[in-house]
Structures are given as structure tokens and as C-alpha cells.
Design a protein around this nucleic acid. Structure first.
Length: 612
DNA sequence: GCCGTTTTCGGCCCGACTGTTTTCAGTCG
């Protein structure tokens, strides 16, 4: 796999996992968050599935988990508003609403605890071994009392598992193999990593003369921040040529399976790639189907049913007595058109608000990378960047930008040789001179990524910040502080007249570090009140703000600024990851500050200063 | 467990592949 340059954040970290108990009681000030509620619902779904419960009941919990996780505001905000009910949320009925209420009030759920007493939590690991699902895991537990991966491994090696009905020698081997790759298989990789694999696969399969169409689907196409596996669809008259070529992939570790139309392989890093060969008249239907999301498709299929239609990966069919008549399927547009729906941008297909928007004719025209005029967060060799001011400017101009802000670290970030006032003023003098040479075509804004100190307050004096064109405020230290402390630090920064935007507002790093405890609703309220901006950091390991929070910021009228936080020339190319995230949030050009012309941007900055 | 102008009960998306079967269950996406 091609190495990807990520500023600050290193790849290869293990996923940070918290048990439910940790989640419940982490930190001294207990507070139930949306994601904790969602995690508990997901775990209930897993446990119920293991017990063989009604699959639709299981789905209802998973659905509930997704709805709460995707909610663009804190569940506390909904509960505090007397005019709103949890059951107004589609998919949350009386029962789940009560459970959410109980979780918020008491931090625990009797049903959840009882399930955990009935089923050892470790059996959930067994269900995650590829090839094992709830039924087989339950049988292993019931018949052989296997509750841990270690016990499972031992039983397979002792050839006990093959004695069970429905199991055989082959299954034992699959399980043993599955255990060894289970950890890697569970890890979702950054979208950017998936993109580099997809590019390689596209090039490889591009050498097949028989391929007429090729497209990637799945969460990769939806631009999700992490990707579990890659789905590639092709139209070809020669299936064996395509499958043979995929089998020649340089990073191939194993062929998992190969049938008439489907082939699955795994890379050495554990990424699964699924290839499907479909007829041309089905390509659009297959693309729609495998792009998902699952919940989006369930909704689509429900709508189809109401109209006497059936949709599968081969096309849309009209049910006519016993016959099924093909109606559409060659293109996605045609598939959606049978339901009088627009061809949703893949990034919106999450069963969030896209159907509501479509019904009102208000589907947003999503931002695209060509709308971006500037990049307002980057570092140079003055601190921990690898390119000089001149090099960054040249690279930015090459990328078609018309302005940038140089935002090196402030002094608190000693590890990066952060700038004190004297060094910062010297850099700004250099930028002034530089701008004179550049003329009107390109402008470098005098910026700073100023730390919000652990004890509160900014890392540089106000009279220095007042000289800046652009001030980002960041939390880098004291991330373990209480919710109240961290929130107050950020609110104080927002109220500082010279601060323009809060950078990477939640501090999370995908697969590695949870967001710090912050009352994000309070941050939204303060930013809206004081005319401040929030950053969507485009680093593929950060993507902070989260898409759900971007949508919430929009609803508060807060402009988002998409920045690369580049620490090198290549880092400037991260912009497209931020664009994808913004698109997933349903943001348009108008919602993003750095799509504006420089005079418009300066006016926005002045507005923030006048409101604080 | 959710949902509803066909319904408050009875539905809930659908097909490929594998392994263990001998017509199908389980898993996966």
C-alpha cells in the first residue's frame, strides 16, 4: 500500500476500545452521551442476537443506536425541550424512548445488565470471528461451553468443534484462521488508505480488456471516514479474466472465495476486497445496492414495495401477478427515478435526512473541492512543518488556491518549537514582505494556531493576537480534564475577540483517541453568539468535526472552515478528505467559510471580532 | 421493537456463497 503522509498523526495505531462499563463511569462527572447510549443499544442488539431473539427486534435496537448516534444534537437538549418528544424521532418508539430516559437519568439499564449476566460479554468476540455468527456462536457456547476466543481455539485444535451439527473439519480450519485475523479484520481503515488501495485495484483491473464499466461501491463510495472493506463492481463479458487479474493483486494475502459472479480476497493488512461482476443492464442497480447504506436501502426497498415494485441488485422489477417485469437497472439515476427520487449523492445515503430533503425538493447542492479558495491551517519549518513558508505558498498556488493562512504552533507546544511573541512577530514581518512581492493574486494571512492553556486563557497575549489576520485556538494539552474544565476553556477562547475559529474542536483521532469531554452544544451556542467559526480538520485521521456535528453547526448558522492542518506540501492534498466529510454533513458552498473571496472572508472575521 | 389513510396485528429487503447437507441453514454484505 502506498504510504500516505499524515501530519501529526501516525498510522497503524490500534483501535481504542472501551467496555461499556468504562464508558459508563469514565470520568468523575457522569454524563450519558449520545454515543454511549448508542453503544449500549448496539451491545443489547448483539446479546439479543446471540440469544436468538426476533431478528426484527434486534434490528430495532441497531436502528435506535444509529438514530441516536447520528443525532445532530445532544440527547439532553431534546429531553430538556418540553415541546419535543423522543418518540418524534422515526425509529424510536415508546419502549426505546423510555430506555433512553432511564439511561440518561440513572446511567444504566436493567435489561442490559441482565443480558450481560446471562451471556458472558466475551462470547461477543466469538460472533466477530469471520464465518461465525450468532447461531454458531450460541451453539458453541451451549454445546461446548466455549465463551472465549482461547477456548474456541483449543476446541478447534482438539477437533471437538467438528462433532457439532452444522460444523465440519473445514469449518474448524476457517475458525482457526479467522481467530488469527479477527483483530485485523475488525479494524476499519482510514478512508484515505482505502482510497490508495482502490486506486491500485482500479489500475490493475483497468488492464483487463473485457471490462466495460468499473466502479467502487460501499462505505468507500459514501466517503465514510473509515472503511471496513472495498466493494468493486464491474461489467465484463469475461468473468474469468477479471477474477484472474484480481488474484494477481500484489498485496494479496488470500482468496477468501470465488464463485460465478463474486470473488473475495484479503490483503496482507487484512482489508477484504469484494469483486462482483454484473450484467450491463444491472450495473446501476448493483451500484445503488452495494453503495448502501444498508438503512438507506431498506428505506428504498420499502418505498418500492408500496408501489408494487421490487428492487434487488439486478434491477427494479414490477410485480405483475407471478411475473416480475424488468423496469430499470442500467444506471442509478434510472433506479431512483422509478421511485420519483433524485439520484442522491452517495455521501448522503445514510437514511438521515436525505428522503425528507428530497420530498421537499431541498436536496442540498453539496460542496466540491473546486469551491475551495483558501486553506487556513498549516505549519512551516518555523515549528513542526517540513516545508518553508515559500514552499508552502508555491504548493498552495499550484493547487489553485488564492489565499492561505500560516498558522504555526504557539509557544506552549514546546515539542514543536512553538512560537513565542517575538518569533511570531518576526514571521509576520516576513509574511508582510512576502505579500508585497506576491501582489494581488495571492495572499498569505498572518495566522497562529494558539494553544488554549490547561489553566485556561490563550498562550499568547491579546495585544499580539490583535495583530493577526487569523487566529485558530486549539486544545492540545489537558485533554483528560473534566467536561466542565475543557468546555470552559473553549468557551473562554470563543469569547476572546481575537480568536477567529476553534481548530479540531473535539480532539478525536480515529481508531486511536476518543474525543475529549466537551459540551459540544455549549460550544455551538457560544460560537453562534460570538460569530466564531469551527474547523473541520481535513487530516484523514482527525476529520474533526464529525459529520453529525458539522450538520449541527450548520443548523446553528456557524460557518465551517475546512483546513488541511498541513505539515508538509503533500499535506495540502488532504483537503479532499475534509470535503467528503462536509458533503456527508450535507454542507453546501455557502456553509463553508473558505469558499469565500478574501474580502468576504475578512468581513466574516471582522464580524466575529465585533461580536465579542 | 417499530410502524400504520389498505393495518393496532402482522408485517419488517434480498441474493450469493460456503459448508454440510441431500434441500438448506448460516453468514455476509
Amino acid at each position: 500500500m502506498k504510504a500516505i503522509a499524515f501530519a501529526c498523526v501516525h498510522l497503524g495505531g490500534r483501535r481504542v476500545e472501551f467496555s461499556t462499563k468504562d464508558c459508563l463511569y469514565r470520568g468523575s462527572t457522569f454524563r450519558m452521551t449520545n454515543s454511549r447510549i448508542a453503544d449500549i443499544f448496539d451491545e443489547i442488539a448483539d446479546l439479543l442476537e446471540f440469544q436468538g431473539s426476533n431478528p426484527f427486534r434486534v434490528r430495532a435496537y441497531r436502528n435506535g443506536a444509529r438514530i441516536i448516534r447520528d443525532l445532530p444534537e445532544s440527547i439532553h437538549t431534546v429531553l430538556a425541550d418540553d415541546s419535543r418528544k423522543l418518540t418524534d424521532l422515526e425509529g424510536i418508539g415508546k419502549d426505546l424512548a423510555e430506555k433512553i430516559q432511564t439511561l440518561v437519568e440513572t446511567g444504566a439499564l436493567k435489561q442490559h445488565q441482565e443480558l450481560l449476566e446471562q451471556v458472558p460479554a466475551t462470547v461477543l468476540d466469538i460472533m466477530r470471528v469471520p464465518g461465525l455468527g450468532p447461531k454458531k456462536a450460541a451453539l458453541l457456547y451451549k454445546e461446548l461451553n466455549i465463551a472465549t476466543l482461547e477456548q474456541l481455539k483449543a476446541a478447534c485444535e482438539a477437533e471437538q468443534v467438528r462433532q457439532l451439527k452444522g460444523f465440519g473439519a473445514k469449518t474448524e480450519q476457517t475458525i482457526l484462521h479467522g481467530i488469527s485475523i479477527a483483530a485485523a479484520a475488525n479494524e476499519r481503515i482510514y478512508w484515505a488508505e482505502a482510497d490508495s488501495v482502490a486506486t491500485e485495484i482500479r489500475e490493475l483491473l483497468g488492464t483487463c480488456s473485457s471490462i466495460e464499466q468499473l466502479e467502487f461501491a460501499g462505505s468507500y463510495r459514501r466517503g465514510k471516514e473509515t472503511v471496513g472493506d472495498l466493494d468493486v463492481l464491474v461489467v465484463s463479458q469475461d468473468v474469468s479474466e477479471v477474477m484472474q487479474r484480481l488474484g494477481e493483486y500484489s498485496d494479496l494475502a488470500e482468496v477468501i472465495g470465488r464463485g460465478d459472479t463474486k470473488m473475495s480476497i484479503r490483503t496482507h493488512k487484512g482489508l477484504q476486497i469484494d469483486l462482483r461482476v454484473v450484467p450491463a443492464e444491472s450495473f446501476g442497480a448493483a451500484l445503488q445496492y452495494f453503495t448502501g447504506s444498508k438503512d438507506h436501502n431498506v428505506a428504498i426497498r420499502g418505498l418500492a414495495k408500496q408501489r408494487g415494485l421490487k428492487i434487488n441488485e439486478y434491477g427494479v422489477y414490477r410485480i405483475d401477478g407471478d411475473k416480475e417485469v424488468y423496469v430499470a437497472g442500467a444506471t442509478e439515476e434510472a433506479v431512483y427515478a422509478t421511485l420519483d427520487l433524485p439520484c442522491f449523492p452517495p455521501e448522503l445515503r445514510e437514511a438521515r435526512r436525505e428522503f425528507e430533503w428530497a420530498a421537499k425538493g431541498e436536496l442540498p447542492e453539496l460542496i466540491s473541492i473546486k469551491d475551495i479558495r483558501g486553506d487556513l491551517h498549516m505549519h512551516t519549518t518555523a515549528t513542526d512543518g517540513r516545508a518553508s513558508l515559500e514552499e508552502m505558498v508555491a504548493a498552495a498556488r499550484e493547487r489553485g488556491l488564492s489565499y492561505i493562512a500560516i498558522t504555526d504552533h504557539s509557544q506552549r507546544v514546546s515539542m514543536a518549537r512553538g512560537l513565542n511573541a517575538a518569533r511570531l512577530l518576526a514571521q509576520w514581518a516576513e509574511i508582510d514582505a512576502f505579500n508585497k512581492r506576491l501582489g494581488k493574486e495571492f495572499t498569505v494571512l498572518k495566522g497562529i494556531e494558539c494553544d488554549i492553556l490547561e489553566a485556561g486563557g490563550m498562550d499568547l497575549p491579546d495585544d499580539v493576537l490583535a495583530e493577526a489576520d487569523w487566529v485558530l485556538a486549539s486544545v492540545h494539552y489537558g485533554q483528560q480534564q473534566s467536561r466542565e474544565q475543557i468546555t470552559q476553556r473553549i468557551l473562554d477562547a470563543i469569547e476572546n475577540p481575537w480568536v477567529t475559529a476553534i481548530a479540531h474542536p473535539t480532539g478525536r483521532i480515529l481508531n486511536r483517541r476518543e474525543a475529549y469531554e466537551v459540551d459540544i452544544d455549549a460550544v455551538f451556542a457560544a460560537a453562534a453568539e460570538h460569530g466564531k467559526l469551527l474547523e473541520l480538520n481535513a487530516n484523514p485521521a482527525r476529520l474533526d468535526l464529525h459529520d453529525v456535528h458539522c450538520a449541527a453547526a450548520k443548523s446553528h448558522g456557524i460557518p465551517i472552515v475546512i483546513n488541511t492542518d498541513a505539515h508538509s506540501i503533500d499535506g495540502l492534498d488532504c483537503m479532499r478528505y475534509g470535503i467528503l466529510q462536509a458533503r456527508r454533513a450535507g454542507l453546501t458552498k455557502e456553509d463553508i467559510a473558505n469558499t469565500r473571496t478574501l474580502p468576504q472572508l475578512r468581513s466574516l472575521i471582522r464580524k466575529g471580532r465585533s461580536k465579542t
